[in-house]
Design a protein around this nucleic acid. Structure first.
Lengths: 204, 204
DNA sequence: CTGCGAGTATACCGACCGGTATGTTTATGT
DNA sequence: ACATAAACATACCGGTCGGTATACTCGCAG
């Protein structure tokens, strides 16, 4: 029986993961060797393999951490800037993204990882899909809060714009992409609100 | 004086480029070695370096070829399916994308290449941006044909949805993304047409 | 007949890859 | 005092990386 042991996050393991996360995002997964991670984390390859088992294990831990951090960042941003119910909460997610992208100027770390992992059976692939689905469902939830009809479909549409903005901003070298996305999502939300009010007028 | 000589496309060079293009797209740039390309193209490393100078030169040629092919594919698709003026030409680009993605199931080759090249000064980076800008401008041109006001902004918005659909379809593992994108773009075009007709009623 | 470009075949280079092995030091808790 | 675990240090493994060198064959145009 082979049981997969999750990495025991000792202080050095934390340092390793943070260092690896920075290098993986900034240069790509295959472009960064384990030896370089050890050097920059001021530790040894031995310790890395003791804690994470393999480079693939470290990559998986990186994606898991990045996934969790984005979720926390986005929700914290929305709750801080728009705690009260309203359409502003939806746009706040895009503002969170803009703020996130200001520091992460190399595009979406998950899309970038997908570029190197797709086709392999890597354990990180489900995490990549999870992040995309989480963001989509976050939009859906915020639209549902507003009692907007077809919140699922509209949430998926907003998520499309969200992902497209990242691509156009980075790979497409189009600085106006985020502003365009914000304007478009604003119109989509307004469209949903109008549909809701029209339906309420009919039903109630 | 060091002049960069473009690759002389002998028959074997064509074979090399086609083989490399398939491998680069399917597995990533760094994941594929020159030796493997030589084997699968039924030639030698020597010939590859004679024709393309370096692996980076081969990567640049791959991106150039893929860029041109997408342009040709999209325009041919639109002209074939919707040669007459009308809103259908805009949606036809998304249909071309859907048809293209059916064969290219590993996402956008340019976004994937960007994931591995960003931050380096690679010659392929401008080609990646060029492809994104071309697609955006293609949408803008088709909207301009319809005399839709704010065609530039609306075209940029449609391009956002276009790029987002690819991401959600592949990295996001969301099969409905393309249908969602088509529905949303359809509404955006209709919105533009309404704005045009309202303006014509005012002016004319 | 000759020269040349294209392609083949193969051996080689230093560097780096992911991963393993052996052994030592240090701190903590019982 | 002793065990345990965490981390350190270092050397090593087979394999692959991008790239180069040498020598050969073939077809074609002057």
């Amino acid at each position: 029986m082979t049981t997969i042991t999750p990495p025991r996050m000792t202080p050095t393991a934390h340092r390793i993961l943070d260092t690896a996360a920075g290098l993986f995002y900034e240069h790509g997964l295959r472009a960064v060797g384990v030896e370089r991670i050890a050097e920059e984390a001021d530790t040894t390859k031995k310790t890395i393999y003791d804690r994470f088992g393999s480079k693939d294990g470290l990559i998986t831990a990186y994606l898991r951490q990045r996934c969790d951090r984005w979720h926390e960042y986005a929700t914290a941003y929305v709750e801080e800037h728009h705690p009260e119910p309203g359409t502003g909460r939806v746009l706040a997610v895009l503002d969170a993204l803009a703020s996130w992208m200001a520091v992460n100027s190399r595009g979406c770390g998950f899309v970038n990882a997908y570029a190197e992992l797709a086709g392999t059976g890597h354990d990180g692939l489900p995490i990549i899909a999870e992040e995309k689905i989480w963001t989509r469902d976050y939009y859906i939830g915020l639209l549902t809060e507003l009692d907007i009809p077809d919140a699922e479909r509209r949430g998926r549409e907003v998520a499309l714009v969200h992902e497209g903005a990242i691509v156009q901003l980075t790979a497409g070298a189009q600085p106006e992409a985020m502003a365009d996305a914000r304007a478009l999502v604003g119109r989509l939300v307004a469209e949903g609100v109008s549909a809701r009010d029209a339906a309420e007028g009919t039903v109630g």
